[in-house]
């Protein structure tokens, strides 16, 4: 065992202080210490994207980030994007367009899609496919995931225009 270090994270807007070994992976800290179990472990080898969270404005695979590396960062998980009474536009779009079946990949998909639309608010279908390429789904065949993201993009742009 190595020395533990003091870690400070802002997770879904809340400050979290904990002692952890630097080698602990961010996904394990989120799930096992902070009980934030939205981000899933699909492969643990940087391939599936089920563990995707937003870290300081970047979509990252939290199975490939040491908690020490994340020290000081602001993290958003699926739990932080909405409340059960008022779903995020993307969550509603996934529901409307059947963007999920078993739901295992969905927290990673939606978290990634939020950052994608942040970086590129009006993507083409090709840009959605390319921008979601780090997230694997074993069920849907992706068609409806792409539809959901495009529908959410349209709705979010319309809302932005209405607000202006």
């Amino acid at each position: 065992m190595s020395k533990k270090m003091q870690i400070t994270l802002t997770v879904n807007g809340e400050a979290q202080d904990l002692l952890a070994e630097p080698r602990e992976l961010l996904i394990h800290v989120l799930r096992e210490r902070l009980n934030i179990t939205g981000p899933h472990i699909g492969c643990e080898t940087s391939h599936c994207g089920a563990c995707t969270v937003t870290m300081d404005g970047k979509s990252v695979k939290s199975c490939t980030v040491f908690v020490a590396q994340a020290n000081g960062a602001s993290i958003t998980t699926i739990e932080g994007i909405s409340t059960p009474d008022s779903l995020h536009v993307l969550q509603n779009a996934f529901r409307e367009h059947h963007g999920l079946q078993c739901g295992f990949c969905t927290p990673g998909m939606i978290t990634r899609a939020i950052q994608l639309l942040e970086d590129n608010p009006n993507p083409t279908e090709e840009e959605v496919r390319f921008g979601m390429a780090g997230n694997l789904c074993r069920c849907t065949g992706y068609q409806n995931i792409v539809k959901s993201v495009l529908a959410a993009a349209t709705e979010m742009s319309a809302a932005r225009e209405a607000a202006e």
């Binding site: 940087s46 995707t52 990252v60 979601m132 780090g134």
Partner: peptide
């Protein structure tokens, strides 16, 4: 190279 998540890091 890789995918979006990997390219951010």
């Amino acid at each position: 190279i890789a995918d979006p998540q990997v390219r951010y890091m």
